[in-house]
Design a protein around this nucleic acid. Structure first.
Length: 194
DNA sequence: TATAAGATTTACT
DNA sequence: GTAAATCTTATAT
């Protein structure tokens, strides 16, 4: 085994959640769940800028049992169920009390693709992790994992040195947040141009 | 307690 | 391109 460069606590503390959403592109999300490890490179993210962002569950500092993890210190997961069907995985960032989060919208499968295919019940690699709901299913992440530390050994993020040059990154408005009014137009989405 | 709506995916027309 | 699936959470009685 080569050296593992797990992102440290300090990585998640920056107050610029949009910058962090960009920085997470090219990093590698790894899970070790039910005794099995899987990994994929992050290729699409969206920033959710806390109290002032109408698209965020924490808009106006709305603090509930569900949103509580977003208010904690950066470096944990915020996972919630949407449409009664899909678990969506977010990375909580910023200092304690600032509900910033980055939604991971898509991965490129890297390790244990067989396991991902079993969990997703499809052989189509292109569709294993192509959306925020599907990647959670492929990685074994459940909404009950909300609040899990990304510095622990269940869900974490590594830097494996993949190139993410600026010219390869597409920036644009977020997806399916039309209810957020003008905030829906903000360029908070990042994706590798493939 | 009851009701409405959702940071999506999939199948079907 | 359109619609159904499906259930937790938030908000209102």
């Amino acid at each position: 085994m080569g050296q593992v460069n797990k992102l440290p606590c300090s990585f998640y503390q920056d107050t610029d959640v949009v910058m962090l959403a960009r920085a997470l592109i090219g990093k590698v999300l790894v899970t070790s769940i039910d005794g099995m490890t899987a990994a994929g490179m992050i290729i699409e993210t969206e920033a959710y800028a806390g109290a002032g962002d109408r698209a965020s569950h924490a808009f106006g500092n709305r603090f509930t049992e569900r949103t509580a993890p977003m208010f904690a210190k950066g470096g944990i997961a915020y996972v919630y169920l949407i449409y009664g069907i899909h678990s969506l995985f977010n990375v909580v960032t910023g200092p304690d009390g600032i509900p910033h989060a980055v939604l991971v919208r898509a991965l490129k499968p890297l390790d244990n693709i067989d396991l991902m295919m079993q969990r997703r019940k499809t052989m189509d690699v292109k569709r294993l992790c192509n959306g925020p709901g599907t990647l959670s299913q492929a990685m074994g992440i459940h909404f009950s994992d909300s609040g899990t530390s990304l510095l622990d050994n269940r869900i974490w993020i590594e830097d494996r040195g993949f190139e993410t040059g600026h010219e390869k990154i597409i920036t644009g408005p977020r997806i399916n947040v039309g209810y957020a009014g003008k905030d829906a137009l903000l360029p908070y989405r990042f994706r590798i141009n493939d």
